[in-house]
């Protein structure tokens, strides 16, 4: 991968991220009320988008062999279970990831 491409790609991420942060200030800093629909989407789109990204993470999963789906599903369930139990971000992320790594490296 070319260094120039990586730099541009990181630049795009930086620019778009900044855009989402600066836009409210560009539009509404001099007074003016943001439309209610923005508040509405702002409240309810994030949970929908996170669910979308969970599906995105699992997009390449296939069911033709046990090793193609079991590690991801088992580790995913472990993450959710750990999080419901302790609600500690780090524990849930690291615990699930280590389980996944053991499953793909040692078991399957």
């Amino acid at each position: 991968m070319k260094a120039a491409w990586i730099a541009v790609a990181i630049g795009v991420m930086a620019l778009v991220t900044f855009l989402t942060r600066v836009l409210p200030f560009l539009l509404f800093d001099r007074g003016g009320q943001p439309p209610k629909v923005i508040h509405y989407l702002g409240a309810y789109l994030p949970p929908a988008v996170i669910a979308m990204l969970v599906v995105y993470c699992y997009r390449s999963m296939t069911f033709d062999a046990l090793g193609n789906w079991l590690p991801g599903v088992a580790a995913g369930l472990a993450v959710v279970a750990l999080h419901v139990w302790k609600r500690n971000n780090m524990l849930s992320i690291v615990g699930g990831t280590i389980l996944y790594m053991v499953l793909v490296q040692v078991v399957f």
Binding site: P47, A48, C57, P71, V79, H83, S92, I93, T97, Y100
Partner: peptide
């Protein structure tokens, strides 16, 4: 398999939203 950390992060955010929010319709829609 370390790339699973991204999946785990999004699952944690989703679980957190599920536990703290009253409305689950947006998550099902997503």
């Amino acid at each position: 398999g370390i790339d699973f950390a991204m999946t785990a992060l999004f699952l944690v955010i989703a679980t957190e939203q599920w536990l703290s929010g009253k409305q689950h319709l947006p998550a099902f829609l997503g």
